[in-house]
């Protein structure tokens, strides 16, 4: 933790470049959550506690397909399982006792993590926290704006919002395709889901599709 006198501010400045996008993304979550029948307060509470876009969209999409609580929650938590290794990667730069580390770790999202990564692969705590705070604020406020706006908009299906979910996940998927292995994982996951949809309750195909992650096994 050396370098610029205010790494927090530097992190916040980096995050500001994508802050409008995060706000709008939060608004689209609020809107789609509304279209899935979730109340405004529930969607804002979810953004404030979960603070991870794709998992929140996943949970809401399973719920909107009349999936069970277990299926919705499992799909979302599995999507966030990546935060275990991500959290481990920044563990050594966070400070203080367990409680403080616990709180600081909540500011880790894909973007704040990426912003805080130095060229040498190590991480900067100030950048992480500064960026995380800006992104968190935009995400929660955006969700509130979308949820309240959604209540004013009316029938979601006539607006085509059901297709918006698929488009969103597709856009998020493209960002994750960074290797040939990821392509295979996506193909396996997508195929499993396609085959299972006619035979299982909503949500189950998504959970079964996690088997696609096994292509990530690396030999020593």
């Amino acid at each position: 933790m050396t370098g610029s006198p205010s790494p927090y501010r530097a992190g916040a400045r980096r995050a500001a470049t994508i802050a409008p996008a995060v706000f709008v993304f939060g608004a689209s979550f609020g809107l789609l959550a509304h279209s899935a029948g979730m109340g405004a307060l529930a969607s804002v509470v979810m953004s404030a506690t979960t603070f991870a876009g794709s998992a929140q969209f996943a949970a809401v999409s399973v719920l909107s397909a009349a999936g069970s609580v277990g299926a919705a929650a499992t799909a979302a938590v599995l999507l966030n399982a990546r935060y275990v290794p991500i959290g481990i990667s920044v563990a050594s730069v966070l400070r203080g006792g367990p409680l403080r580390r616990f709180v600081e770790a909540q500011l880790v999202v894909d973007e704040s993590w990426a912003f805080s990564r130095r060229r040498d692969g190590s991480f900067d705590r100030g950048l992480l926290i500064g960026a995380g705070l800006v992104l968190y604020t935009c995400w929660v406020l955006g969700t509130a704006a979308g949820a309240i706006g959604g209540e004013a908009l009316g029938d979601p299906d006539s607006l085509g919002l059901d297709a918006a979910f698929a488009a969103l996940f597709l856009a998020l998927l493209v960002l994750q395709i960074t290797s040939r292995r990821a392509v295979v994982a996506a193909l396996v996951g997508g195929t499993i889901a396609f085959v299972l949809v006619p035979f299982t309750a909503p949500g189950i195909p998504i959970i079964a599709a996690t088997a696609g992650c096994l292509v990530g096994w690396r030999k020593r």
């Binding site: 996943a58 999409s61 799909a75 990546r82 994750q176 949809v197 006619p198 909503p202 992650c213 096994l214």
Partner: peptide, 27 residues
């Protein structure tokens, strides 16, 4: 770590499929 890295692409692809062509126990 390699397996955890591949969770997101596998899950997101499944979400694309279920949102695009998923119905109540049918495509």
């Amino acid at each position: 770590a390699g397996i955890v890295d591949m969770l997101a692409p596998a899950l997101l692809a499944a979400l694309v499929v279920t949102q695009a062509v998923g119905g109540d126990r049918k495509l």
